[in-house]
Amino acid sequence: MTHERRDALLRTALNLTQTGMPVLPLRKGKGPVGNCLSCSGPTPGLCGGRPNMKHAGPCICPAPCHAWAAATTNPAVLTSPAWARAWREAGTVGYHPGGADLTVVDLDNAAAVAWARKTLPPTRTVPTTRGEHWIYQGAMASHNAVRPGVDIKSRTAYARWLGPGAGPTTDLPAAVRALPEKEETTPPRPGVVSSSPDRATWDRTVATGCRHTERFVRTGLERGLALVRVRTEQGAGSQAFGVARFIAGQHAACPGPCGLDTLGRDIIDAAVSVGVPEPYAVRAVTNGLSGAVRAT
């Protein structure tokens, strides 16, 4: 990165702190910088053994570890030597919405944007690469994949700073607060609720109507699971939704059954392994599988 680009990002971050916005550097891939050695791994270090800050707690490390938990409004911290490497690697600026008493409804595609315009109260909107961020005043718990293409970023989450957006900021409505609860009541597809170690694995006994070879199915599944497992900081739930939707779409032309519920259980387990609560993982994968079926 050029000095000019790095200085521009740091200036943006410093300007945001003047509005009370907790900020942090993000890498070119939109992810946070990696934790330092003292905060990495399962062994308790300076952060008390919370490598992804899934649970609240103090961390005395001066580096920008733990993604959203590192976001700060302190200019001295942002310009400190401990943060210099992170700014050299940064591709953009992120912020912690919940720390500013905000909620971002992340609409990831045109269909999600169309749904929001019909369903949610209008508020400040920020264009993104594929959709929009709708910004509401008020914080709530963060949830991934509350419906196809929709994530909620507030507490325990970060979002990219893409500009101030347009329009007045509306108070967080009940319609947004209710989205996770509505999804919790969605009946899951059979076979994805239990996490029993004795569950079936995918083979021809559960996929008698699948047109694909076993190698094709297993290769696609392993690639999808790998995408979920690398999301150790954030986004594993959304990735699990995307993998489930893609895999289900591959089987749209099969006479069935294809054993999608068994494949879905593997995706759920992968998401849970990187810290996604199992009810959220089940919901994301269930929506992904059923969403692909509805889209065909």
Rank of each mutant, 00 (worst) to 15 (best):
P64F: 00
G191Y: 10
T2N: 14
G224L: 01
K182R: 12
E4C: 10
R124V: 00
V93E: 10
S290A: 13
E4D: 14
S273Q: 09
G220C: 02
R6N: 02
A111E: 12
L289G: 09
K54S: 12
P22D: 05
R204N: 03
D269W: 00
L9E: 07
Y280E: 13
P32R: 10
V113R: 01
Q250G: 07
G48W: 12
N144D: 13
M53F: 14
S142F: 12
G209E: 02
L16M: 01
V126A: 07
A244C: 05
V176Y: 01
R130V: 06
A100K: 04
A157W: 02
L10I: 09
F246P: 01
M140S: 09
T205N: 13
V274Q: 03
V113W: 01
G249F: 08
I152M: 10
W83P: 12
V146T: 05
P121F: 03
T169P: 00
P62T: 14
L9H: 14
K54R: 15
A100E: 03
V113K: 00
L179C: 05
V243Y: 11
G91K: 14
G220L: 03
P42A: 14
G167E: 02
V285I: 03
N15D: 15
R199L: 08
V113I: 04
A271V: 06
H251I: 03
T219N: 11
G249D: 09
P32E: 02
S290H: 08
A111H: 13
H55P: 02
G275K: 08
A281K: 03
W161R: 00
A236S: 14
N287A: 15
L14H: 12
L37G: 10
T208Y: 13
I267E: 10
K153Q: 11
G264A: 06
V276Y: 04
V105M: 12
C36W: 09
S238I: 03
P42G: 09
G138L: 13
R199F: 06
R177H: 09
L289F: 10
S196Y: 05
R5W: 06
G138Y: 14
G98W: 00
A292G: 15
M21C: 09
G209N: 05
T128P: 04
V276S: 03
G57K: 08
V146D: 07
A240V: 11
V228S: 09
R5P: 06
P187G: 09
T170S: 08
W87Y: 07
M1R: 15
A56S: 07
G57V: 09
N144A: 15
A84V: 06
A100T: 05
V206I: 00
R50Y: 08
A281P: 04
R85A: 15
P58K: 11
V193Q: 13
G191F: 10
K153A: 10
T43F: 06
A8C: 07
A90T: 01
G275D: 02
A56D: 05
V193P: 03
V23S: 10
G224P: 01
G138Q: 13
I135R: 04
M53Q: 15
R245M: 09
L102T: 04
G249C: 04
T19I: 03
T169M: 12
K118R: 13
I247V: 14
G288A: 07
L24C: 04
L46W: 09
D108F: 03
V126Q: 05
D101V: 01
H133A: 07
D108A: 10
R6H: 02
G220W: 06
A200N: 11
G249Y: 06
R229D: 00
